[in-house]
Design a protein around this nucleic acid. Sequence first.
RNA 1: GGGUGCUUAGCUCAGUUGGCUAGAGCAUCGCCCUUACAAGGCGAGGGUCGCAGGUUCGAGCCCUGCAGCACCCA
Length: 957
Amino acid sequence: MLDKTYDPHRIEAQWYQRWEDAGWFAPREQRDADGGAYCIMIPPPNVTGSLHMGHGFNNTLMDALIRYHRMKGDRTLWQPGTDHAGIATQMVVERQLEAAGKTRHDLGRDAFIDRVWQWKAESGGTITRQLRRLGSSLDWQHERFTMDEGLSNAVREVFVRLFEEGLIYRGKRLVNWDPVLHTAVSDLEVISEEEAGHMWDMRYPLTNGTGHLTVSTTRPETMLGDCAVAVNPEDERYKHLIGELVELPLTGRRIPIVADEHADPAFGTGCVKITPAHDFNDHAVWLRHRDENQIARQPHGGLINILTPDAAIRDNEPDEDELIPCAYVGLDRYEARKRIVADLDALGLLAGVKDHKLMVPRGDRSGAVIEPYLTDQWYVKIGPLAEPAIEAVEDGRIRFVPDNWKSTYFEWMRNIQDWCISRQIWWGHRIPAWYDAEGNVYVGRSEDEVRTKHGLAVDFPLTQDPDVLDTWFSSALWPFSTLGWPPELNRDTDRLKAFYPTSVLITGFDIIFFWVARMIMMGLKFMDAVPFRDVYIHGLVRDAQGDKMSKSKGNVLDPIDLIDGIELEPLVEKRTRGMMQPRLAEKIAKQTRKDFPDGIPAFGTDALRFTFAALATTGRDIKFDLGRIEGYRNFCNKLWNASRYVLMNTVGAPSPPRPEQDRGGDATPTDIELSAADRWITARLHQTIAAVRTAIDGYRFDLAAQAIYEFTWSQFCDWYLELAKPVLTGEHASAAAKRGTRRTLVQTLETLLRLAHPFMPFITEEIWQKVAPLAGVAGETIMLAPYPVADPATADADAVAEMEWVQQFILGVRRIKGEMNIPPGKPLPVLVANASARDRQWIDIARPYLDFLARTESITVLDDEADAPESAIALVGDMKILIPMAGLIDKDAELKRLDKEIGRLRADIERIEKKLANPSFVDKAPAAVVQKERDRLAEQGAALSQLEAQQAKIARI
RNA sequence: GGGUGCUUAGCUCAGUUGGCUAGAGCAUCGCCCUUACAAGGCGAGGGUCGCAGGUUCGAGCCCUGCAGCACCCA
């Protein structure tokens, strides 16, 4: 028997352990011939990270799909693994060193990397433990890590092959440079946001003595690297000056005025300084003009770098004279800015300063202002890879859900730039390239291979490229590297053959570019097939106000806290820990105390999962409101208690149900009698099964959850369990009828548990263990039991009609009681008038239901309505339910009630009459629609006249 | 500037190829501790579907314009 109260914590802990120990998460041979392989790759979380709400959401949806397909009998794999997360992880360890007053350089490369591995060993289990808490049925025996041997082999293999094809190259380019982390980062890792700054107007004197040009800039310090001033070729103000020179203040250099579209006549003065080594747009201008004499003859051909990797002003090289004025050498970029502005001002060359909002690029990891910077980097030539990746989506081999995300994908893919894949950090896949003393580069899978291939002696000095690859490079290979690619290096290629292409990728829109697009490109390139058929894009999990959850806002919810609950003080501590700004911490603490005065109660994993599923409507972000999870926790409780009721009434009952005898419908054994209620709930159950399957197949987790919720609560609990009571306890019911009800109870519940299992794995397993034997269902676990299949033969129009009549009757009586403030439990005598033969028959059959659910004391069928006393009325079709008013019901209250109802009917009738009076409606609308309106008019008309008669009668009293 | 969405009850959201009185949960208001469940039961109130046009017999849904909000890219 189940415990009296639902305690998620008690049941969740033991079941996961049991499932994993039993090896039930591993793929099994498919059960049905028509079932196929089904595979999802987990988006690998940061190995040393911890679970956030996005993970919770994402993994709930994946696990629901995986469990669904596993139960359906597909050969199902959910591939687990983690990502080394290069920059993020390295930063964490560097911060630890910093606390001890050290830098990574104090340790040296090898020791530092050891230190990171050590950190992985310490904290690497956190997120996988948390995934287990969510109930995620991942195939842990095959867990992978992006830096394990197999995946590292895959990375080298891909690098070498792309290099050999000319799709990887090394080049000096302007990159996004993070001056704090000292590494290049890709475009995607730069977040530009609007910040308050200034716009300076600076005067550059014309060398012909006719005055000066005024240029506007947000970065005056970069003027040291200017190579030109650009004006728009159509700009009448400056046309005549094109080709003239200006003197670049503070440097003594002379730079030309060039004509370029980049100069916007409407912006500022229309003159723009060109600093090609420190601005992407300027670099493009320089590329267009670098062959012009006045630019070409400048130092470095005009491409003048003025910064160190720390973003300070660099010193001059021996052969540069004073290209960079000594006064500024060594100054940080912002210090240099102050000094240059002051010096220009002193020279009378500062025309003005105004406040200005500008987009400031920052590194998404370090938060440092990113500097466009000239460096040598490795690139992937992306055009040849992007082309087939675009086609795969165009021709439908890959489908986005919702569909509209493909426009975002196309937009990006059609404007894609070469991918900078080298990073100047230590934690990651070292680039498999070696240099000799002359700087020649050799690329190969290993140093040995390089030496063999190029005939280099063992003692020929080679040094490996110090850089590592962008983390996303290895992530891009995830769908096949985890399955054992490249086959030449793996004995077991069964998984690769069985599960590639995978079935669906489930992820947030924020990594379509980082990850999804790159997996498609690499998958097509190296597997010659798409990596997944569907891409399901879900929204962001936001807080109840719709704000993005972030540590600095202090509005982060931890899924584990929702599962286990957390007291106020630990929650405050957790949210404010490690805060740099004490003021912020104070504010967050205050807000947290206000939002969660009693902390967060424990809701359990099933409630959390069901909430995620219910909120997973397509195409929008979800606001996570604690009210929702509370509601679904209550739902779990409801299911628990309903199950207790079923068990109380079926455990040890004589003649336990034997479903195997009557599968197929018509073979009902003679010792069992199924009532209309039994047949009705069975029909509803199968409708629900069909709805849930359709919903899951279409990735409508919200609709699936809703269908389960509605059936369980509003049909099974509110009606069927109540209808079962009088049968099970009443003396009137035959033994066969009792058996029929018991069997229906237990079978409906057993099926419902299987139906709900993908969404609420723990509670369904716990209950199923008790219920399955009673339902005659064998099996060790619900997670391997077959997923319910809708049986159309269960549809039963007669049973549905009868039960709807019963419900109308009960609702009619209840409504009168409710509106008249009569206690619902008070038994009342009820009269019935205008009853048809069928009504009379049903009253007879359903009498125990009516007495129990409507608390009718007696039901008297009147042959002549004239005999009826003054009564409150409810209609069931043409039949009238009359509740005598004497001593119970206030005349005015009943008249008011009737008035309202009559008003409603009249409005409706008027609307229908108007519609039917319109000849074009009758002519053009489908006949069925017209007929429906006519039927309805007749129905409403009949009801109206009944109520009007009743109103007149009461009014006469 | 370009792109993608969103706007439906006090709140959070469903609403499928256009067709019954636009639904649900939460919140609100009554009545009830009825032997599975007060984390509950029974009942009630609450909406000009952002605004303005158009197409149609018929529009929350399709088209056009406008307003507001969000996100992405530059």
